[in-house]
């Protein structure tokens, strides 16, 4: 994201606050490097702003949420009284919808267009404050279930409008799930992710799930979700992931954004890619495990995107 913004001489703050910059930056990268998919992600706080949070933009950093809007909402009854944001009224959600529409207008069907929503757990952490949300999962399961329902409903509404505006895929960012126990995940988060993905599939969208870090402890339940593409961070063992997940799930990954891409060379990137492709087998797409940092050599990203023939 910061890389793409800087690639066209802009900055992260503008990329996150103006869909035109986001769209032009990502199209420029897609055309020069050969990406197959255009993304609408910029930061986690689109929906959070829709719930009333103040967001501050930094020229060269991730946008900042001044205060989680649900920090003082401690009771289920208070949660139940909250109205969901209308994506076409909330400025930052509307900005993402505008990005999808502009992608479609400028590129037609040349690229896959990926809309984006915060997953139920990620949005709950954004709204409540991450530490408080995680402690609520232990202390207040009823409250947590109610909050996660609100978050899933918000994501469903937001995803639907993005698909209707031209997105063929919805990326679901639920980064924090890797830090949650299988028991809590299975009971509280998985049912909401399932509901969200079922809803996306029901209107013809494809699903991409991004969870930062090691997700192995969640695979037994993740395999039951209707995931089309699962991002694998660089610490994930691809052969194990391939064996654990249904063959229909495309794995994406899993170069280390810093050690492989920022500090690597075109030849080390190529070698890592060959390894990943042989380990992951079919139904695999190449990407970095997480965000590519500013300053990554252009030659390394070209090496990442260079077409390769799979060895039989």
């Amino acid at each position: 994201m910061q890389y793409a913004a800087e690639y066209i001489g802009s900055n992260y703050g503008t990329f996150a606050s103006d869909y035109r910059t986001l769209v032009h930056a990502n199209i420029a990268c897609a055309e020069d490097f050969g990406f197959d998919q255009l993304s609408t992600i910029s930061d986690p706080y689109r929906e959070t702003q829709g719930f009333g949070a103040e967001i501050i933009y930094h020229e060269n950093g991730v946008p900042e949420c001044v205060r989680p809007p649900f920090a003082d909402i401690d009771e289920v009854e208070e949660l139940q009284a909250i109205s969901l944001p209308d994506p076409e009224q909330a400025p930052r959600m509307q900005d993402r919808i505008d990005a999808v529409r502009l992608y479609k207008e400028l590129t037609g069907d040349r690229y896959s267009i990926m809309g984006w929503v915060e997953g139920p757990a990620a949005l709950a952490g954004d709204l409540r404050g991450l530490s408080d949300f995680l402690m609520d999962l232990i202390d207040e399961p009823e409250y947590s279930a109610c909050l996660l329902d609100i978050c899933a409903d918000t994501a469903i509404r937001f995803a639907r409008i993005q698909i209707n505006s031209g997105a063929d895929t919805i990326g679901i960012g639920d980064a924090i799930c890797s830090q949650i126990s299988p028991m809590v995940y299975n009971e509280l988060i998985w049912p909401r992710q399932k509901r969200l993905m079922d809803s996306i599939k029901a209107i013809g969208g494809k699903t991409r799930l991004h969870i930062c870090g090691q997700t192995e402890h969640l695979w037994p339940k993740l395999r039951e979700l209707p995931i089309d593409l699962l991002d694998c961070d660089h610490m994930v063992d691809l052969p194990k992931a391939r064996a654990a997940l249904p063959p229909s799930v495309v794995l994406g990954g899993n170069l280390d954004p810093v050690n492989d891409l920022l500090y690597g060379t075109p030849s080390t990137v190529a070698a890592k890619l060959e390894k990943s492709m042989s380990e992951a087998g079919p139904n695999f797409v190449v990407n970095a495990g997480c965000e590519i940092p500013s300053g990554t050599p252009k030659a390394n990203i070209k090496a990442l995107c260079k077409p390769r023939l799979r060895k039989c």
Partner: peptide, 14 residues
């Protein structure tokens, strides 16, 4: 040992 995760550590630390 991955028998507990971040939420359990947070409540213990609290």
């Amino acid at each position: 040992a991955n028998t507990i995760f971040v939420p359990e550590v947070l409540v213990a630390a609290r």
